[in-house]
Design a protein around this nucleic acid. Sequence first.
DNA 1: CATAGGTGTGTAATCGATTAACTTCTGCGC
DNA 2: GCGCAGAAGTTAATCGATTACACACCTATG
Lengths: 321, 321
Amino acid sequence: MKDVALHAGVSTATVSRVLNGHAAPTPETRERVLAAIEELGYRPNALARSLRTTSTQTLGLVISDLLNPFFAEIARAVEDEARSHGYCVVIGNADESAEQEATYVRTLLDRRVDGLLLCPATDDPSLVREVSAGGVPLVLLDRTVRGATCPVVRADGSEALTALARRLVGAGHSRIGVIAGPPDTSTGRERTDVLTGALGGVARVVHGDFRQESGSQAAAKLIDDGVTALVVMDNLMGLGALGEIRARGLQIPHDIAFAVFDDQPWFPLLDPPITVIAQPTVEMGRAAARSLLALINGQQPDDVRLTAKLVLRGSCGEAEL
Amino acid sequence: MKDVALHAGVSTATVSRVLNGHAAPTPETRERVLAAIEELGYRPNALARSLRTTSTQTLGLVISDLLNPFFAEIARAVEDEARSHGYCVVIGNADESAEQEATYVRTLLDRRVDGLLLCPATDDPSLVREVSAGGVPLVLLDRTVRGATCPVVRADGSEALTALARRLVGAGHSRIGVIAGPPDTSTGRERTDVLTGALGGVARVVHGDFRQESGSQAAAKLIDDGVTALVVMDNLMGLGALGEIRARGLQIPHDIAFAVFDDQPWFPLLDPPITVIAQPTVEMGRAAARSLLALINGQQPDDVRLTAKLVLRGSCGEAEL
DNA sequence: CATAGGTGTGTAATCGATTAACTTCTGCGC
DNA sequence: GCGCAGAAGTTAATCGATTACACACCTATG
């Protein structure tokens, strides 16, 4: 920057003003400075700027698994929305581990992100408190924690789950397997509670860890237990469960009815296509980014609750109804 | 930091020395400083540190599409490897657009990443030159550009493609559709060249843009053209092509043989399971990160060329052979 | 007992920007 | 011709770290 100033025969202050579109400089001076910048191929150092202004124009996003298309889609949406407001997004992969999550959150805070979007790995509120204590704007996404005091953006699947339960029971299933998420995540618990509530006594619940492998294991257990329908609470576990069903040569929906929470582009391609509860991932990501930006600008955004929708495709024997 | 120094009754220099595990401080001083840090909940400002040291301990990764599981997996691997060496990764989403790619690259450079990993959207070398001119370590991943002078990490599918071609021709197909990537990407061209070369005159090539929609359109065109086999050069286009095949009620492999470049976890679940050429994504990501770190440390890593493997599953009528 | 050599700390310059406060210059009114 | 307002630009402090150099103190040595 000093070089540019020298080259243009002005002071660094003037260069800075030109760069930031500030009040003062004469059109003529401005030209000279821009020419010098061009000629020297100068690019301002974002670190120095941020240090001075205490604003990095960056949001942090900590998710539990980049490989899960659900989170990938959310990340993409967050990024789009952020970019359209001049912000960058730094993504952190917690790998469903509370420790890694904490590590990432601290790293991001150390780098002075202007705000943080978090999909908490567990419902333990201590990390959230730590962030809030540091005064950094925080929005929770997809999952919440106990006694959260910050805005939360999530999808509400109650209606869809209830409708699904009604359908399964109506179709005569009297032993229905539920592959749930970890009981220490809000989504793991809430979805399961709603579904088992709606199913009455016919539900058999096994908890997985939101990963493919746990899906197949849980499916194996439930099938051995004689269930005639399987509802899986996450797409990766759904993938695992499907594998197990295939491996055993069971026919969907004849031998077993099947449904998954969270849609995937390839679900319609299976035979039969998979019935799902689809979450509005893009809207969730955008809404979360918007809430965070509002928070950064000193506003107090409300919680956002979007509704997930039941999409009937055939894997629960809809044709037969 | 000044507060910590005051609190511990030492100078900021000493605090810094304790923080960085430097030679000097007495165990006793060290204790006092650590206690003060603890008490005040002090965390060093990474921006200031980076400004001073000109090292951010951060790698930039610019990929063309986070929603493509292929890139998501690579990103994940890069991140793992980087983290294990104490580096963070900032991911940028170019959306298969050269402009956005350039924007992201510049943003990352402005933030002074220590090195850059790039999956170039086109084979135009100007952006690569720009980065190199800035003296920032750069490694290309998955794709290369014309006259690249930096290390490149990619998967070689020649053998697999040749084997696949032999199989299809051997099975009697005389009109084989190829859905290729954009001709201005190195992978788009090279894979297609190898395959069409091995197929002789029976290939019908349509170029897509690595997105689902273009896959269905290309498939429609080729099927109308009467092909009896379809090879798709990327998993997203493969998804689109599959959709088109299903929509037309065609049976794989009876009515049409089908294969995809790049494996996906759900391909084995289809009926029949999809024959693919599997790329070693995780190894690609790790290797790229390692090459970049080597470059940062002043070494001169070689290009890395991993081999993609043909996985026969049935969608090309393997059972009948 | 002066002197050299080590140790542990402190002082202050530095990284590259932003910006408050100040200087200079121009033009205008009386 | 003097004073003064307002515009254009400069000087220098600042953000929060790192680190070269200086300094004080201590011990071993000739």
